[in-house]
Design a protein around this nucleic acid. Structure first.
Lengths: 356, 356
DNA sequence: TTATCGTGTGTGTGCGCACACATTATTGCT
DNA sequence: AGCAATAATGTGTGCGCACACACACGATAA
């Protein structure tokens, strides 16, 4: 459509406006002093011809450096947050030639103090954009205020926070992710059976927003479909399988009617390992996220289904949108919802090497 | 890792080798005459320092034009093949600044003569790469031979053909897509109910590879899971709903035990429209592809599940891999399998605006 | 010898842009 | 009026590369 305009250069603009390339340059970059008269003339022509700078030439000539900071939870290999980090790396390597560097900062997802700590000295060096995993709502809001003050654009990933000035959000609608888990589970259990919802607790950590919203969506779906079974709940510990096994033995013994189980985050392998050890093939389990410990159990049939949310893409697109904003002056949607993928034993393998 | 080398320019190489930039240029591009002695010296240095040309500078300076041709079925708005075409366009616009032009050629998917026709004059103009939708195996093989002869790289999309010299294939494993449909359907019907497999026939067109392989996977899954119901088959006509309704009325009347239905391509809306008109909510339908006529029925609950295969991405990555091969000298995997997405009413909306 | 050719090699120009710098126009001030 | 200070504008250089061209040299033929 505007292919016809794509070859117009700065010199052409200059000629049309009857000024020199220097003046056009000043108008384009808002630098230096240009008479109001000329500024208007050039602006008009720029818009009229849809001037698109040649990005190749620009990045060749420009010595400008952009520095982005990505703030995410730290992770061990194979854990959930590794995926987002991979997406960030992918974007970083793609954008390498545009003189972009990315610093990755990590905090402890179970300790919001660590978030505040790494953020404190964030602005000591020059920062042009920030990507934030929004686990600690209050801390993130505080940081956002400060970034607003310095007019530094920032991106949210994982879960959104309303009422802030984030450039964009990349993630899912947790509520719907809960609905989908309910749909998947109820497809596989008898109508009047019971369901067990397990929570993994950590010392000193309250439930995440994500988890709460997913649970809400899950329960809502059950209610709306007229589910008549009982809902049980249990708290498990992340690193205490002895405790977990005892607890679960108790529950399943006293509630033999439980056919379905669910955990609202990536730690569903904990319950999966129990079901596998006890050979309870008839009990269905639905969980979240494409991490190795889960995919293993999914392919063995222990986990019935996983709900996944493209964390790699969240990181990738988050960084990309910073670039689009700063380098290419084009803005993206403020809310970008990732597809909520349904993974079964049968389609798992096609997702494993296809993360982006 | 090799970041340290990324700033080495041609002049640096030249200096190291004690020759001029012209000579280095000749070695890099195998053009012109260079003494064996100098060629070796320069080659050695190029490899030693992992010389990576600056692509920005290269595409700025280069007047070279690349011309790709994409051969796919023609389509009306909202039909399946539109998606692949969109992916091609996306890649085209991203690669625009690298002096790449893409010609899209269309054939009638129900008439392989039309394929042969448009291919006949393909090489009249200069062609640097071809993307082929492989519906007509024999014709595609003939074309591949010719492209081999002229050493023009080509990409297959949609379904793969073994034993050819395609640069890469982007698509799915149809067999597994059939397995998944079976899994989805059997999750929702009673164990001893019947299943109806419908085929949409066109005048003069035999079954596609895709359809046949999906059907095979579907039946295999049923057999392996010990499905005990009966399998019925019916042939419907693409543009004759009177005929279809009569036929289907007959079948459902004489087989009240049918709880599940399946169509192995994107035309499942045809059966969906029947089920909707007859208000047969209890009959489940699984079909393929995220096209508008289907998504409408999916969101209404008429279609139970859709299996989709990212056609946009097939087109996009197909073109991209041609670029990677020709421009950037980096090669991709020969077989690239897309994720097989499972779409339910509940997660549909997140896929609609998220095609790439 | 001189003219002609082929082969190897080096130099120069421009792609479109950013940015430093040089130059000119305009204003304020004594 | 004259001169500095400042605003406005124009010019030049280089980013890294591709590619056309100029040049040097030896071999060969006239």
């Amino acid at each position: 459509m505007d292919k016809e305009f794509s070859n117009i250069r700065i010199v052409d603009i200059a000629k049309m406006a009857g000024v020199s390339v220097g003046t056009v340059d000043r108008v384009i970059h808002n630098r230096g002093r240009v008479s109001e008269e000329n500024r208007k003339k050039v602006q008009a022509i720029l818009e009229m011809v849809h001037y698109q700078p040649n990005l190749m030439a620009r990045s060749l000539a420009s010595k400008k450096q952009y520095h982005f900071v990505a703030i995410t939870p730290s992770f061990a290999q194979g854990e959930y947050w590794e995926a987002i980090s991979e997406g960030i790396d992918k974007a970083a390597s793609e954008m390498e030639s545009y003189n972009i560097t990315i610093t990755k900062l990590f905090f402890d997802q179970y300790n919001n103090k660590t978030f505040d700590d790494i953020v404190r000295n964030l602005l000591d060096e020059k920062v042009d954009g920030v990507l934030i995993a929004t686990l600690f709502t209050d801390s993130v809001i505080r940081l956002s205020r400060e970034l607003d003050r310095f007019e530094i654009p920032y991106i949210y990933v994982d879960s959104n926070i309303e009422g802030q000035h984030q450039l964009a959000y990349f993630g899912t609608e947790s509520y719907d992710a809960g609905v989908i888990a309910a749909r998947l589970l109820t497809d596989r259990i008898s109508p009047a059976s019971d369901i067990l919802m397990a929570r993994i607790v950590h010392s000193g950590k309250n439930d995440s927003n994500q988890g709460r919203n997913r649970r809400e969506g899950f329960c809502r779906y059950l209610k709306e479909m007229g589910f008549t079974g009982n809902l049980h709940e249990v708290e498990l510990k992340i690193n205490d399988s002895v405790y977990n096994f005892t607890k679960l033995d108790e529950i399943f013994e006293s509630n033999p009617n439980i056919e379905g189980t669910v955990i609202f985050n990536s730690t569903c392998y904990i319950l999966g390992n129990y079901l596998k050890a006890r050979a309870m093939q008839s009990v269905k389990l639905v969980g979240y996220d494409l991490i190795e410990r889960n995919t293993q159990l999914l392919s063995e049939g222990v986990i019935t289904a996983l709900v996944a949310q493209r964390p790699e893409r969240q990181g990738y697109e988050g960084i990309k949108s910073l670039c689009n904003h700063l380098l290419f002056k084009q803005h993206s949607e403020k809310v970008n919802l990732m597809p909520i993928d349904i993974l079964l034993k049968e389609n798992l393998k096609y997702y494993l090497n296809n993360k982006l």
